[in-house]
C-alpha cells in the first residue's frame, strides 16, 4: 500500500511541480513531501503557487509534525527535511548535500527507511545530481522510482543522474507522472 510520495525538483521545478500537483485529485491518500531547491526569498511565493495548483492541502513541513495522509508538504528553505520512524518530520542544519540544503537525497533516504515498499519517489527537472543516491536507496528498499524523461525536462541533469545511478521503475513525461501516482495509489487500496 503506497503511503507516501517524495518529490525532488530543482531548476524548472516550480512549473513542473504545479503541473504534477494539478493532476492529483482529492481522493489521493498518500502524503506528498517535496524538496524544491529555492532561494529563501521565493519560498512563500512557492507555497502559494503550489496551493493554487492543488486540491490537496499544502503547507511547509514543521519540525516534529506528524505526517498526515492526503497532505502536501514542502521542505523549508535552508533546512534538510527528514522523516522519522514515527512518521513525523525532523529538520537539520547539517552540511549541504550535493551543494544544497534542503537536499532531496536526505529526504529520500530517510523516507525510504521508514516507508520501504510503501513509498514512491519522483525525480523531476534539475541542473544538478541531487536525489540520485536517495533514489537508489528507495529502489533497493522496494519503493517505486519515477523519473521525469530527461529529454523533455527543462533541466535534464537531475533526472539523468538518477537514471544513471538508480535506474527507474518508470521513465515518464511530466504529464503522465500524476496519472501514474494515482494508479499506484489506487492499486494499493485494492
Amino acid at each position: 500500500m503506497m503511503e507516501a510520495c517524495v518529490v525532488g525538483a530543482s531548476t524548472g521545478g516550480v512549473s513542473a511541480l504545479r503541473s504534477l500537483l494539478r493532476g492529483l485529485d482529492k481522493g489521493f491518500r498518500p502524503s506528498v513531501i517535496i524538496v524544491q531547491h529555492t532561494a529563501t526569498e521565493g519560498f512563500n511565493v512557492l507555497v502559494d503557487l503550489l496551493r493554487d495548483s492543488c486540491v490537496l492541502p499544502v503547507s511547509e513541513a514543521q519540525s516534529r509534525e506528524p505526517i498526515q495522509p492526503g497532505h502536501v508538504y514542502l521542505a523549508p528553505p535552508r533546512y534538510h527535511l527528514l522523516v522519522e520512524r514515527q512518521q513525523r518530520f525532523a529538520l537539520s542544519v547539517d552540511e549541504r548535500v550535493c551543494h544544497v540544503r534542503p537536499a532531496a537525497d536526505v529526504l529520500f533516504q530517510s523516507a525510504a527507511e521508514v516507508w520501504r515498499d510503501r513509498l514512491a519517489a519522483v525525480v523531476l527537472t534539475g541542473a544538478n545530481d541531487d536525489g540520485a543516491r536517495g533514489a537508489a536507496l528507495v529502489r533497493s528498499l522496494g519503493g517505486t522510482l519515477i523519473v521525469q524523461d530527461p529529454q523533455e525536462a527543462e533541466a535534464p541533469e537531475m533526472p539523468a543522474a538518477a537514471l544513471r545511478l538508480a535506474g527507474a521503475d518508470h521513465v515518464l513525461p511530466l504529464n503522465r507522472i500524476a496519472p501514474m501516482l494515482l494508479k499506484l495509489a489506487a492499486r494499493a487500496n485494492a
Binding site: L82, E84, R85, A90, D94, E95, V106, S110
Partner: peptide, 12 residues
C-alpha cells in the same frame, strides 16, 4: 538524539 539525523552524521 533524533535517530534519522544522528544516523546521517554517524555515516558521514
Amino acid at each position: 538524539y533524533a535517530p534519522a539525523s544522528f544516523k546521517r552524521r554517524v555515516l558521514g
